[in-house]
Amino acid sequence: MSHIRARSAAVAVVLGAALCACSAGAGGVSPPADAKPGGRDRPVTVTVTPDGEGAAAGKPVVVGAEGGTLSSVTVTDAAGGRLTGRKAAGKASWTSDRKAAPGTTYTVEVRTRTRDGRKVTTRTSFTTAAADRVNKLSLAPGKNTTVGVGQPLSVVFDHPVARKADVEKQLEVTTSNGTEGSWGWVRDHSGKDRVDWRPREYWKAGTEVTLDARLKGTDSGRAGGWFVRDYRTGFTVGARQVVRVDLDRKRLTLERNGKKVREILVSGGTPGGDKRSWKGTAVLMAKEGTINMNSETVGLGDAYDKMVDHSMRLTWSGMYAHAAPWNAAHFGRANKSSGCIGMSDSDAAYFYGQVRVGDPFEIKGADTKGTIAEGNGYGAWNLSWERWRARSALHG
């Protein structure tokens, strides 16, 4: 069996009974001179696009058959990855479900059936041009973790994403109980593009969540570049825990499954200036243990520089819940911190052991810096469902 490529918009292969006798012409391949219309020697012409070396990426692979029908099409890359696809009605064409990725060589095996019932197989290949720029991403939460009911799926991109709708189409979220949710695009606190998926309401305990980011072969735009791989993560939602912080009463209440577990005396941010706390719903981002806190990193000059125990991050801008024994005289009495939610060593140790990443902190108070922004940690819960859904590139 032999075949020949036509270096035009497609690669054409003419198939005879046992051996292909072909002559390439502009736009296709001519049948053998002795082929008779409707006769046994009438060939099948197979076309494949993209074609050749340095072909354009970001397009589906399309296979066509003239003079016969397609029995099967197999498209594989050098690593053995396969592009699945579908045959059109009449079986005269096949289109891949995914787009061809940049810098990749694909082998295409096509099995056809001639009009008089003969089966013929042909193989060809093409290579796409390499990407000038590659975009990558980071995912939260981590794979195979158990998180709280407020934890969103969060995707942060290394480079800008201009083609947000094209990217969002490739992000598939599957839940074990059909949870309603939506993607929403935000500007991360780092300045990068970010897209989060949050449920309409807090997750139900026990929900299993999977994200398939089928981005290989997707162009994020001129400044962002191509994605050259897929990503996958999954997590489970733990018990329903909600932390309610009342800065006016200087009280923190931990609730589990709708029941009060413990109330803790706290001291929040000092009223009247830059040391005030944020209000709204924050999501516990990380349990960081004992860390150094330096006021210069959050724009508060030399107000403090100390090691702090049982530190639980709530925002990228530096609001934590943590042990603050130096403020013991103010717990339950006055807000005198530099913006964090402080409590005693013993209460902080207990609380640190009870909460998990993803637990929502619902914070209220009369004198605060304002509501936590969507990109300052996980602030999506501070938008109504309608406003959040409007941030989707597909539904907004």
Rank of each mutant, 00 (worst) to 15 (best):
R222C: 12
G221P: 09
G191I: 03
G225T: 09
T207K: 13
A205V: 06
A223H: 14
G221F: 07
R200W: 10
D212P: 11
D219K: 14
D219L: 13
W183G: 00
F227I: 06
V186N: 00
K192E: 04
K216F: 08
R214A: 15
K216D: 10
P199Y: 07
W226H: 08
V228K: 07
R200F: 09
G224I: 03
G184T: 00
G221N: 03
R214W: 13
D188F: 02
R194M: 12
R222P: 14
T210F: 09
W197T: 00
Y202L: 10
L211S: 09
T218F: 08
W226T: 01
R187F: 04
W197F: 07
G225D: 05
L215S: 02
G206F: 14
G206P: 10
R198C: 05
A213I: 03
G217F: 03
W197K: 06
D219F: 15
A205T: 12
K192A: 09
R214G: 12
G206T: 10
T210A: 13
E201R: 13
K192W: 14
G206I: 11
R200K: 14
K216L: 09
R229L: 09
E208G: 14
A205E: 12
Y202N: 06
W226I: 01
P199Q: 02
K204F: 12
G191D: 01
T218K: 06
A205P: 10
G184R: 05
D196F: 15
G221W: 11
D196L: 11
G217D: 02
E201F: 07
L211V: 11
R198I: 09
A213F: 08
G184I: 00
S220K: 04
V186L: 11
T218L: 05
R222E: 15
G221V: 04
L215W: 11
V195R: 05
R194V: 00
Y202A: 01
G184H: 04
V195L: 01
W197C: 01
S220G: 08
L211F: 03
R222H: 14
E201M: 11
S190Q: 07
L215V: 11
R198S: 05
K204L: 14
F227T: 07
D188L: 06
W185K: 00
W197G: 00
S190R: 11
G184P: 05
F227G: 07
P199S: 05
R229P: 09
K192M: 08
G206H: 08
D193I: 00
V195W: 05
A223D: 15
T210I: 14
H189D: 13
W185T: 01
S190A: 09
D212F: 06
A205G: 14
P199R: 02
Y202G: 02
V228I: 09
F227N: 07
K216T: 11
R229I: 06
R187G: 12
V195A: 02
W185A: 01
A205W: 10
G225Y: 12
Y202R: 06
G225E: 08
R214D: 13
R187K: 14
G225M: 10
G184D: 01
W197H: 07
W203I: 03
K192I: 01
W185N: 00
S190E: 03
P199K: 00
R214T: 12
V209L: 02
T210K: 14
V186Y: 09
G217C: 05
W183E: 01
R200A: 13
A223M: 09
G191L: 04
H189L: 12
V195P: 04
K216I: 05
S190L: 10
R198N: 05
